[in-house]
Structures are given as structure tokens and as C-alpha cells.
Design a protein around this nucleic acid. Structure first.
Length: 262
DNA sequence: AACCGCAACAACCGCCTTATA
DNA sequence: TTATAAGGCGGTTGTTGCGGT
């Protein structure tokens, strides 16, 4: 007996979400909190797969999401964490509040990876591409797995970085990353990275938990949700959008009333 | 103006893990 | 203990917009 599909693919809508669908989903979750995702489409009046709803909410509609490109510091942290954790995007994302695994994964693949390659770093292993002529001729260290201290510029700082990145012995073989992540004190990570790896950051669900326990009390949501003062403004703004207003989808998406992104 | 190639990112797919009956 | 449902994760694909020709 095979696994059942998560939804009837013939009956669900696919592709980009419309503003109206977003509105329905947001409205539903604001009213009921997050419950069983499989039931959400039906209850919210959406012709979408529950999984699709979850993804849309998690990666795009959650009010605590930061929008826009990763900052240099965030990018640096991603590199450091990736060196330790590998492609565990959800783990990495957990250390960057307001960022999603999908966002980080995309940013890695489109930006960071290229930067590292340009710098002569293998993005997979975080080691210098030792066998490339250019770097071996330049006398670059060949086996140091690299992470960094801090990013003060847009460039990722790496040892032997021709642009002058800082150097540090970070010889953590990729294969042992899992082990290293369990015992981060065994090597010389930044205190910040260590702390981030060990600390349980506040869960984004906190406010949702609150919502779940106060489903009938919207005043409470307005008082305590991360939307804070801009909450109602945003909701009003959102509801003012025309359904055909594709700028909502294509542009900076959801913005505070002062124009700043969430 | 039209076409093409590329980059960016939203969304999907399939597998894995976890919870529960 | 096992089967199943549901959520979560990571890899991949599809769409869109932009710059160059």
C-alpha cells in the first residue's frame, strides 16, 4: 500500500499565490491560529494543498519575517553556520530570527555560493580550492576549512582572502561537522556563533501560541503580536489592496504603513 | 522594439521524522 | 509494535524580471 498523496492534485490550484488567497489565509490564521494544515484550505476557502498553505505562511506571510536581502552580518553568520551544519537550512534559519530556511537556501545558492567560489573557497567543504592553478600558485593554504570572524563589508571575510580577510585555523573536516555541532566548544568558533548554536532562540510560534490560547480575543493580538503598533495599519493597508494589485505580490510585498518592510 | 540569456526567488516534489491510534 | 497521518526538510523546478545585444 503506497503512501497517500497529501492532497488531490487535480483539484488544487497551483502556482503563484494571489493577493486574495493570501488574504484568506492570513485572515484564517489570524482568526483561528495555526491548526491542522490539511484542514486549512477547506476551512479558509482555498483551493490549495495544505502543504502549500503551510509553505506560503512559513516562507512569506508570517508577520515576523524580515524582508529584503540578508545583511552582511547575517550572510556571515550563514557562512559560519553552514561550515558547521552543512545544508541544514532549517537549523541555520533557526539562528537567524525572521529568516526562513527557503530564503537562506536561495540566498546561499544565488549569492553566497558564487562569492565563495570567486574567493577560491569550495562552498561545499569551506576549504580552499587547493588544486586550482590560480590558488596553488598564489601559495594559498590548501587544507584549512574556513569560517570567519565578522563581516564589516559586503565581502565575506576568509583566511587568505586576496582582499584581506582575516585568518584563523578552523580545521573542522566537513565530515565531522555533525559532531562538531554537538560539541562546539571543541574548536575555535566565535563566541557569538557558539552562543547561537547552543542557545534556543525564541520561537516564532510564541505569538501564535498566544493567539491559539486567545482565539476570540483580537484585542490581545493587537496588543501583543509582533505587529505591534503597525499591526492594524498593516491589516488595513492589506485589505485596501485591490485583488489585481500585483505589486503586492511582486514588490516588497507586505509593508508597514511607513513603507518599511516587516 | 524584440529577442535572448541569466539571475533571483517562490513554489513544488518527494522523502524523512514524529505523533498517535 | 505497527500502520498511518501529518508536519517538516532539503533539493529541484518554474516563473518572472532585468540587462545586454
Amino acid at each position: 500500500m503506497g503512501r497517500q498523496p497529501c492532497c488531490d492534485k487535480k483539484r488544487v490550484k497551483r502556482g503563484p499565490w494571489t493577493a486574495e488567497e493570501d488574504k484568506k489565509l492570513i485572515s484564517f490564521i489570524l482568526t483561528h491560529g495555526r491548526c491542522c494544515w490539511r484542514a486549512v484550505p477547506m476551512l479558509a476557502g482555498l483551493l490549495r494543498c495544505g502543504k502549500s498553505c503551510r509553505l506560503r505562511w512559513t516562507n512569506y506571510l508570517r508577520p515576523d519575517l524580515k524582508r529584503g536581502l540578508l545583511t552582511a552580518d547575517e550572510e556571515q553568520l550563514v557562512v559560519d553556520l553552514h561550515a558547521k551544519l552543512g545544508n541544514r537550512w532549517s537549523k541555520i534559519a533557526a539562528k537567524l530570527p525572521g529568516r526562513t530556511d527557503n530564503e537562506i537556501k536561495n540566498h546561499w545558492n544565488t549569492h553566497i555560493k558564487k562569492k565563495l567560489i570567486k574567493m577560491g573557497i569550495d562552498p561545499a567543504t569551506h576549504q580552499h580550492l587547493a588544486n586550482t592553478k590560480a590558488f596553488s600558485q598564489a601559495g594559498t593554504s590548501t587544507q584549512s576549512t574556513v569560517t570567519t570572524e565578522s563581516a564589516k563589508s559586503n565581502d565575506i571575510a576568509y583566511p587568505s582572502d586576496p582582499k584581506g580577510g582575516c585568518s584563523r585555523d578552523m580545521s573542522v573536516p566537513t565530515d565531522s561537522m555533525e559532531q562538531s555541532s554537538r560539541n562546539s566548544s571543541s574548536h575555535g568558533l566565535d563566541p557569538l556563533v557558539n552562543w547561537l548554536l547552543e542557545a534556543e532562540l525564541p520561537a516564532e510560534e510564541q505569538w501564535l501560541n498566544f493567539m491559539s490560547s486567545n482565539e476570540d480575543d483580537f484585542s490581545g493580538i493587537v496588543k501583543q503580536s509582533p505587529w505591534d503598533g503597525s499591526t492594524t495599519d498593516w491589516l488595513l493597508d492589506y485589505q485596501d489592496f485591490s485583488m489585481d494589485d500585483s505589486s503586492l505580490i511582486d514588490g516588497a510585498r507586505i509593508q508597514n504603513s511607513d513603507g518599511s518592510n516587516f
